[in-house]
Computed example of a mutant assay.
Amino acid sequence: MEYLTLLVSGILVGVAVAAPIGPVNLICIRRTLKYGAVNGFASGSGAALGDGVFATIAAFGVTAAIAFVKTHSFWLQVLGGLFLIGLGIRTWLAHPHLDDSLPENALGDLLPVIGTTFFLTITNPATMLGFMAIFGGIAGFTVGSEDYGRALLLVASVVAGSALWWALLTGFVGFFRNRMSDRMLEIINHVSAGLIILFGLGVSGRVLWERFL
């Protein structure tokens, strides 16, 4: 059950960090509209790899700082929950447009696009800070292991969650390929924002329940 909880938590983290509509999401949406869902998903895989890099840094950093996490786990989890709630609200209030995306890569080779989404992900300081804050919310799941098995599982599940988001997003856009509009994009944004806020409330509610009740 503990490992199942860790797996589900990692997947939710992966979805939460990938879901907000930004440059990478818009690149994937635009390429899906132009080339199809498979191409769009392949474009998003670069972002999933970038999320894996951040997840590795955050997970093993938390694991190596067991004493610190044990001492400050309550506030780390509260911070993670509040960050998610704030991120969700910010995402809800955003008004993305398809025309805001980066220019299309005209080359048939996907490697430049994958490299672009990977670079955009790893060079975004907000993503790194977000990972550290969110991982603080589930830090307790990685504490107490003498090996790195839990951290490895968490990293793998985060990458899986990120990939799941790209599969869902590009599949949805591909299905409505001929009918996508800014309004549909805003609906996607609101759905992702709602999921992020619910996850943040879940993290905060769990730690407050354990602390005071």
Rank of each mutant, 00 (worst) to 15 (best):
F119Q: 09
I66M: 11
L33D: 10
A126P: 04
W92F: 15
T116V: 08
F54C: 09
L168T: 10
G36K: 03
L185S: 13
L82D: 01
L7G: 14
T71N: 12
G10A: 11
E2L: 13
A151V: 05
A139W: 03
W92A: 13
S181E: 14
K34M: 11
A19C: 09
I114W: 10
G44E: 00
R179V: 10
V8A: 15
A16Q: 00
M128Y: 08
G80P: 02
A18S: 14
D100N: 09
V113N: 05
A106P: 04
A42I: 13
V78Q: 11
L168A: 15
G61Y: 01
S181C: 06
A37Y: 06
M184G: 09
P125Y: 04
A193Y: 01
I188S: 07
V62T: 15
P103Y: 05
L213D: 12
L164T: 02
V17Q: 01
I187G: 02
T91N: 14
G80N: 02
T32F: 04
I27N: 07
A65I: 04
L153A: 14
M180E: 10
T32Q: 02
L185V: 13
V207W: 03
E104A: 12
I89G: 06
T5Y: 10
T117A: 10
V24S: 07
F131L: 00
T116W: 01
E2A: 12
E210N: 13
V113L: 07
T127C: 12
G61N: 05
A19W: 00
F175R: 10
F176E: 06
R31S: 12
D99R: 08
M128S: 07
W165R: 00
T170M: 03
N124R: 06
R90I: 04
V24Y: 07
W92M: 14
K70D: 15
G61L: 03
A126E: 13
I85K: 03
L154H: 01
T117S: 10
V8M: 11
L49W: 00
A156S: 13
L84N: 01
W75V: 12
S73T: 06
N178E: 14
G80M: 00
I66T: 14
L49D: 01
T123K: 05
R183C: 06
I114D: 11
F83R: 01
P96V: 11
S101H: 08
I27D: 05
S45I: 10
V191H: 11
